[in-house]
Design a protein around this nucleic acid. Structure first.
Length: 492
RNA sequence: GGGUUGGUAGCUCAGUCGGUAGAGCAGUGGACUUUUAAUCCAUUGGUCGAGGGUUCGAGUCCCUCCCGACCCA
């Protein structure tokens, strides 16, 4: 940790001196206006109009730029809404204040009262009659022109990134709008927002390794949830026919540009719906959030155009593979031996028990997934890798399941829910066997969930949407850490 | 785990063939009553990621390690 250097020492000395003059951290300054609001309201006023009918404002913010001249100075302050120039002259504020002001630093928080005017270059500016130091900043800000560029520092000290980088502020404002748009869309469609446990006695609803913790009073092991799915479906059993939850999931796995150990998911369930209707709804929801957040369905992602306005494609796994690799024949893709050879050639070791569908899926993930730039629903997942999804009536080896890919990334995963308690029991048994055979990601046998299913889950469709990944798309962010305020980092 | 690339002042970065460690910003002192990344003059500030080696001499060359970033798995 870079610490006490001469700059900090000088600022501490200034603070010590400032304390002697009274309350160094006052909280009685009444801010009445923000920079953005002032620009909205008065940017159209001419110099003469401002002179003829003076507008008094009271603003506050952080000093970002400072231009001190002999007896008059300019500072640029920044608040949540933007920047504003403030003019401080010895004629308007008293001499003591002006002399003190000259010693304030970039990064300090100030409050200013005055009237609006236009400078020679026509910039809307506050002519101060009063200026106060509200909070001393002891640490120097990053270089004022380049800002903070070190990626690691941006993640570790997000506040500094937010102070200095407008793009970062924009990204998180858009994130908020996206979440808000999803929430309002769900509510408008009659869904009930719920909160289900984050601590699960049995981690379920996904295939992933959990974080473990312990409840002392109950002397009981608990797991941070890897998915809310099984609880949300219990609610549908309970008659809450349309529910959704926007919340964190935790998966004890690797960190990558697309993976953070905790990430945000929106899951929703609708009784008497199925995976086909879910695809329609999901498509509409994603389009809606793009429109609300960006005012457009068409935008650039990493230098390439993404158009969410056009209908999303729907392809089976085999169709998708053949589209991006026309050299692979239908017969080959239906031949487990050929698939195994192919995968091994790609340095993938297929699990022993993997069936045809699982092998096709592995090949898809290996060769095709990353090429799916335009929004594409991949359908007909193998039942063996979909232990909570309903089997297809036309082929019991296939589940009524889809995943949505955009820009080469999985954004959503949904299916017709498995509501046959006996089939579910059989699938849990299969998972339990796989776990015993060493598959750490396999699911646990969840008797409590089965009991709920035995009371009767109506035919239901459910879907999860990765919020972080959606935000990445809509903010043109290459790394999931860019859309999570405090991403997980290695200890310093 | 592999590849590429980086770690030099608080920040952003230069540093040539191995020969006394630099600039801009920030800071400090001074000038300046309409500046715009203000300007002008002066100036403080360095364990060059760590350790070892080669050498008369290492920020620079060699070896090992640590910590990042990006790409791949």
């Amino acid at each position: 940790m870079q610490d006490e250097n001469h700059i900090i020492a000088e600022r501490r000395a200034k603070l010590a001196e400032w304390r002697r003059s009274g309350q160094a951290y006052p909280n009685d300054f009444a801010r009445q206006n923000t920079a953005g609001k002032i620009a909205d309201l008065y940017d159209a006023r001419t110099r003469d109009e401002l002179a003829d009918s003076p507008v008094e404002v009271s603003v506050a913010g952080r000093i970002m730029l400072k231009r001190v001249m002999g007896k008059a100075s300019f500072i640029t302050i920044q608040d949540l809404s933007g920047r504003l120039q403030v003019y401080v002259s010895r004629d308007q504020v008293d001499e003591t204040t002006y002399d003190a002001f000259r010693r304030w630093d970039i990064g300090d928080i100030v409050g200013a009262v005055g009237t609006l005017f236009r400078t020679r270059t026509d910039e809307l500016t506050v002519r101060c009659t009063e200026i106060r130091l509200l909070a001393k900043s002891l640490r120097p800000l990053p270089e004022k022109f380049h800002g903070l560029t070190d990626q690691e520092q941006k993640y570790r000290m997000r506040y500094l990134d937010l102070i200095t980088n407008e793009q970062t502020r924009f990204t998180f404002a858009v994130r908020s709008r996206i979440v808000q748009s999803i929430r309002s869309h769900m509510v408008a469609h009659g869904f009930l927002e719920v909160e289900t446990p984050m601590m699960h006695p049995i981690p379920g609803g996904a295939t992933a390794r959990p974080f473990a913790t312990h409840h002392n009073a109950l002397d009981m092991n608990l797991f941070l949830r890897i998915a809310p799915e099984l609880y949300l479906k219990r609610l549908v059993v309970g008659g809450l026919e349309k529910v959704f939850e926007i919340n964190r999931n935790f998966r004890n796995e690797g960190i990558s540009p697309r993976h953070n150990p905790e990430f945000t998911m929106m899951e929703f369930y609708e009784a008497y719906s199925d995976y086909r209707q879910l695809m329609d709804f999901t498509e509409g929801l994603i389009r809606h959030s793009a429109r609300e957040a960006l005012a457009s369905e068409c935008f650039e992602y990493q230098g390439r155009t993404l158009d969410l306005g056009r209908p999303f494609a729907r392809l089976t796994i085999v169709e998708a593979i053949r589209r991006s690799h026309p050299g692979y024949g239908v017969a080959q893709l239906g031949d487990p031996e050929w698939l195994r050879d192919r995968l091994r050639a790609l340095a993938v070791d297929p699990p022993h028990g993997a069936g045809l569908g699982a092998l096709q899926l592995l090949l898809f993930e290996e060769t095709t997934e990353a090429d799916l730039w335009d929004p594409t629903f991949i359908v007909d997942y193998p039942a063996e890798v979909s232990p909570l999804a309903r089997r297809s009536d036309r082929d019991p080896e296939i589940a009524e399941r889809f995943e949505l890919y955009i820009a080469g990334r999985e954004i959503a995963n949904g299916f017709s829910e498995l509501n046959d308690p006996e089939d579910q029991a059989a699938r849990f048994l299969e998972q339990a066997r796989a776990k015993e055979a060493g598959d750490e990601e396999a699911m646990y046998y969840d008797a409590d969930y089965l009991r709920a299913l035995e009371y009767g889950l109506p035919p239901t469709g459910g879907c999860g949407i990765g919020i972080d990944r959606l935000v990445m798309l809509l903010t043109d962010s290459p790394n999931i850490r860019d859309v999570i305020l405090f991403p997980q980092m290695r200890p310093e």
